[in-house]
Amino acid sequence: MSGAVGRPVSGGGGQRLLDRYPRAGRRDAVQRHQLLRVRGHSVAWLPPLLLLAAVVGADYVTGPDFRMISWVVLVPGIAAAICGIAGTAAFAVLAPIVYLIADALLPHQYDAGAADLVLAALGGILATLACVVRVRGEEHILRMRDIAETTRRTVLRPLPPGFGGLDHAAVYLAADTDARVGGDFYDIQPGLHGTRVLLGDVQGKGLTAVETAAALLGTFREAGYHEADLRTVAERLETRMIRHRGHYEELGFPDGDRFATAVLLGFPEDAPDAVDVVVLGHEPPLVVGPRGVRPFPDADGLPLGLGELAAAAGPPPVQRVSLAAGETVLMTTDGVTEARDAGGCFYPLATEVARAVAADPRTAEPSRLVAYVRDGTLRHCGGRLADDTTVFAVRRRA
């Protein structure tokens, strides 16, 4: 993923777009401080130094009725916000020294007295203490980010290029600015009976949603490898969801109604021009190719965990859809389809993709397609993601 969690996608324009929407791009306080670097060297000391010089210059040109030199107390405060502990301490010492020198060199009628000197010294001490608190908080953020990154790589494992005979690309944007992984999940699993693909969305957010996604992915990786029938894989996922939910109910957690929507694909080896699909309460995928965009057939499958409510036992039957060479299967979670603009209108995914493919057939390539949908979603909602957003595109390798 570019600027977010997930698999990289091509295109520098997408990164610039994420820079415009820092919430979607996961830019935190630690990353913002990296902006105060030039050729690898920190220039965080420059703003407080310029402020110090500006205060002295302003004090020189103002009259005795408007003293400015006492404003040096602001300098350590600015340093505390952007500099390290050592830099802030240096400005905490420098500010009173400059105060003494300026007060001594300026004409006698501009003397300010010892009260402002004590204020400057006390301000420097408080600014240094504030900087210590800030730096420790940023170190905590870095540790938590490392933990979140490890969790992400465990749940959403990196997928090698051409994995399972598929060209693929994915991007994941977490709606929670403090998180790097949520309830969206996806994976590719080559197996004894062809390659299987899964994309899903767990109801709710938080760590319990992440744990549910991890449980379903673990089952998919085993069942997708061994089971000959794609419908059996869906049944295994349904059973895992019920067992996982029951475990949480036994622990007394209020997640007894949790469920997950999912799209399960199978690329059979004996049918290179087709793809099998089971849709479980999810938005049907789109087939995107140089000739246009067409949706998968509607399905009436219920989400994982709610299968007992179906009129017929078990998941819906497997549907086989023709898939020509060069056509890509595009799957998204509701973070895309339910993205709203300022007027409350949903993002017209199929219409926008069809327009893009008509203008440039290369947009159907997985990496280009994922980047286009990502950028279109962010533009449509102005970077205000209401839900975790995943875009996943796969197609057979030529």
Rank of each mutant, 00 (worst) to 15 (best):
P161E: 13
G77K: 00
G77R: 01
R67Y: 12
P96R: 14
H108E: 14
A92K: 05
P64H: 03
A79G: 10
L126N: 00
R136K: 09
V75D: 04
V135W: 01
A95D: 05
P76M: 00
E138G: 01
A120D: 04
A114G: 12
F66Y: 13
A81R: 13
T62S: 15
L156R: 05
R136T: 04
Q109G: 07
L119C: 08
I82F: 10
L122N: 03
A81S: 03
L117M: 02
V72K: 00
L52N: 03
L74T: 13
T151R: 01
L159H: 08
T150C: 09
V55Y: 04
W71Q: 05
Y60T: 07
Y60H: 14
D103N: 04
L52Q: 04
A104K: 04
C131R: 06
C83N: 09
I141W: 05
V93K: 08
I85T: 11
R145N: 06
V75L: 07
D116P: 09
A53W: 08
Y99K: 08
I101D: 00
D59A: 13
L117H: 03
R145D: 06
L52C: 04
A112K: 00
I78Y: 06
G162K: 12
G87V: 02
A127K: 04
L126C: 05
A114M: 13
A102T: 15
R143Q: 14
D103S: 02
M68N: 08
A53Q: 06
P160E: 04
T151E: 04
A115W: 15
G63F: 09
L126T: 01
G113D: 07
A127V: 10
V155N: 01
P160T: 07
H108D: 15
A104Y: 05
L105Q: 03
P96D: 07
G162E: 08
G137R: 06
E138C: 03
L119W: 13
L105W: 03
G124W: 01
A114N: 08
F66Q: 14
A54S: 11
M68A: 10
M144V: 12
R134L: 14
M144E: 14
A121E: 02
L129C: 00
S70I: 00
P160F: 02
V61L: 14
T154E: 06
A120I: 11
H108F: 10
Y99F: 15
L74G: 06
L74A: 15
T150E: 10
T150N: 01
A148M: 07
L106S: 11
G124H: 04
L94Y: 05
L105D: 02
E139K: 07
A148N: 02
A112I: 15
G63D: 15
A102Y: 06
V155Q: 01
P161F: 00
A130E: 00
P96W: 09
I141D: 11
P64R: 14
G123W: 03
A80T: 13
V93I: 13
I97E: 01
P158M: 09
L106P: 00
A80L: 07
M68E: 09
Y99I: 05
S70A: 05
G57M: 13
L74F: 14
A92V: 07
A89Y: 11
G113H: 03
L122V: 13
L100Q: 10
V72H: 14
D146G: 08
